[in-house]
Design a protein around this nucleic acid. Structure first.
Lengths: 187, 187
DNA sequence: CGCGCGATTGAGTAATTTCAAATCTAGTGG
DNA sequence: CCACTAGATTTGAAATTACTCAATCGCGCG
């Protein structure tokens, strides 16, 4: 929990009582490698913050190919936000690449926090803005760059993540076949 | 201005005085076709809401190719959010595809509103969440689909937008060459 | 009428995918 | 400790897709 406080306080400050209250809205969840956090078509009422471990959010298309929307490791948030926001069935699945430990907050609790606490609402607003910009960058990368450059950029941004990922998953994140990825020069 | 109120009230409600105050934070700006709203390397202190017209936000890569990050027509927000959030120089340019009329709010004013008014903070938080999900969808489309399917999806989502766009711009938005776009079947 | 720009068409080329086979690696049980 | 298997990765070669470059077409406007 203390890590969560540090995480929030990168953006806003909390008094002890405030954090006490915030943390009372979270529960914890542990999952093992290969277990699902969210399955397609299921209801999604929670947002998740990764204390430990590594997960992937992905969609399987009609040809059975996996497309990875995001990874989440320590300190990252993950959920099916489309389903979460719109209260519709999940269109992506999320499962564990490594054993994981998560903090869980329900939509209702998050909305409650946001309506009661300015600074928390602000925290989530800023987080969402940051996430938005990150996705824009990824879009430019997909529009712009060949596989080698996409790989290089990811390596540059997140060397630790690459260590922990099977290449197959990395390939579907970058939008290339695993064979093509395998033929790249690995800096 | 009244349109802005309708826009905000899709997500939250405002009293007359509240909206009075909110709207006092905006100014207006008019631009003609081909004029720039934001140029690369310039400072970005404003967020913009489109009252009328059509704009594009794009990056020109080393080879001189244009990659379109977003369009914005009536009711849409646009800015260089990376530069806006981080107070760094713009990395994208924004200019007008059609004559445009904009409502302008500075970062300081927006932050002021958000810190003073719960419901406005909430509005921008929700907006950002919605934008985040839309970008995720676009990423899946880029990872997933061939040019034909990308075109079809966009046509499905935004038929009005397609009417107003030169094909060349559409092509750079979809991440294909204009020749390839031209060879697609246009439903 | 003719210019200029955007869109289309054609042909050849480059990049990536696909399919198939070979190699490597980590974990398991004898 | 070693052999064995399943899974992941790499390599090779052919096929596909989209790109590039070039030429042509079509339309609106002065």
């Amino acid at each position: 929990m203390n890590k969560l406080r540090q995480h929030i306080e990168k953006i806003t400050t909390l008094t002890d009582e405030e954090f006490e209250y915030v943390s009372s809205m979270f529960s914890t969840k542990k999952l093992r490698k290969h277990q699902f956090l969210i399955q397609e078509d299921h209801e999604v009422i929670n947002d998740y913050w990764v204390v430990k471990g590594l997960l992937k959010a992905y969609h399987i298309d009609e040809d059975g190919k996996m497309h990875i929307l995001q990874f989440a490791m320590e300190d990252w948030w993950i959920s099916d936000y489309q389903a979460y926001n719109n209260q519709t069935p999940a269109t992506i699945a999320i499962d564990c690449i490594e054993d994981a430990e998560l903090l869980v907050i329900s939509r209702d609790n998050k909305e409650k926090l946001c309506s009661e606490m300015h600074n928390v609402a602000n925290f989530f607003r800023k987080k969402s803005n940051i996430g938005y910009v990150a996705l824009q960058q990824r879009i430019l990368l997909l529009l712009n760059k060949n596989p080698q450059e996409r790989y290089n950029r990811l390596f540059q941004l997140n060397p630790q993540l690459l260590q922990r990922l099977p290449k197959t998953l990395l390939a579907s994140y970058l939008g290339v076949s695993r064979e093509t990825l395998s033929r790249l020069s690995h800096p």
